[in-house]
Amino acid sequence: MLTISLFLQIMRKYVGAENKSIPSFCAYFFALFMKEPISSREVGLDDDDKYYPFGKESEKSAAYKMYKGKRDIPESVLRAVHANLDKSRFLEAAADIPFDARKNLCTDLSQYRVDCTTDNVDETCAEIFCSIIKAELQKLPGAQIDLFEGRNEVGEAVPPVPIQPARFVDGAVYLPDGDVIKLSVALKPYKNINEATLPYIHALCEVYTERLAKEVTPKTTGELPEKLQRHLELQRQAYFDAKSIERSVRDAFVDGERQFDALKDDAYDGIEMVYFDENHETGYDRLQEVLKKITSTELAKSNLVNIKGFITNKTRKGICHILVDDARIKSWVNTDA
């Protein structure tokens, strides 16, 4: 288990090594995760060495013992950091870690089953520290911390997907309490289809190959009859609509990825019997019946359905194609593939 003591001992080799004493390193490192004082109250606390943790002489003993693993993070420090959390200064400092040192840091972390790369080790370390702060806070008597609480890269609170009815209008989610969450710009289909295209395109090509009795590949989709070209375009639009939703909720809500996974699970449960029905004469028929079924399937496992106007019929159809990418649907033509 990676404790605050072990984590600090690892990080001291890579960030803030110029701080010779243990207390001064702890003060420096914890300050990297706090926004700078802005309000008059915060500035006043800073002037009295009371804003950043371990700034006072009387706190140095606690810092030393925490670093050595002889005590937990002081409650006052936990609350101060959590209330003013901001990862940007740490990420800026960590960006200066040389490449070879990054590899060594990844190796050090791997001993505690932390999987990271030289590209994402900065953010990984920031998340480790924030997770430790939150876990320690939850141990305090009477602590009231939202289990789904999260923060973005600059420490701003990120809400969970609303459990009360909300509205989606013009690219934004309007929450019941009046807050507005702006979502990512919608993705659009790429103009060109090639051999590197995702599995759902190859599954559609298999459908068209069977229907036309001649091979259809991503490179030859431009030769499809007009009706099938239109069909392909509609499927691509649906796919990108669903992928836009997936990306948007992942970025906007702390539990967005989990809620989208629940949506996919619910969708699969709803279409499974139709998909495996042996009475479909062709893969095209199977696909069409599945797309028809998903538009009338009740999706209730995910809180995303609480956002009115968000999960449309186009989104539902797109999720079916994402299930192909996920390999939960192997083929529209051969269910035993």
Rank of each mutant, 00 (worst) to 15 (best):
L299Y: 02
L183G: 04
D72Y: 06
V114S: 04
K20E: 15
P98V: 11
L299P: 11
A252S: 15
Q144R: 13
G55Q: 15
M273E: 13
L6I: 15
P199L: 10
Y112A: 05
K301W: 08
L234I: 00
D265Q: 11
S184N: 15
K188D: 10
S5N: 11
V180L: 06
A83P: 00
E127K: 15
H82M: 09
P159T: 13
C205H: 06
I201R: 03
V158F: 01
E195N: 13
L91V: 11
R250S: 14
C116Y: 01
K56H: 03
L291E: 07
A172V: 14
L234R: 14
E281K: 13
L105P: 00
E195C: 03
Q111K: 14
E233K: 14
L291N: 11
T124V: 15
P98Y: 07
P162H: 10
P218M: 08
R250C: 07
L187M: 12
V216M: 07
P37F: 09
K314N: 11
A166H: 05
P74G: 13
S61K: 14
K314I: 10
D146K: 09
L304A: 04
T117Q: 06
R236P: 00
A31H: 07
K87R: 12
E153D: 05
D100P: 02
A157W: 06
L32E: 05
P199S: 12
Y52W: 12
L304H: 03
A186H: 08
H321N: 14
L228K: 03
E59P: 09
R247K: 15
I193K: 04
Y239S: 06
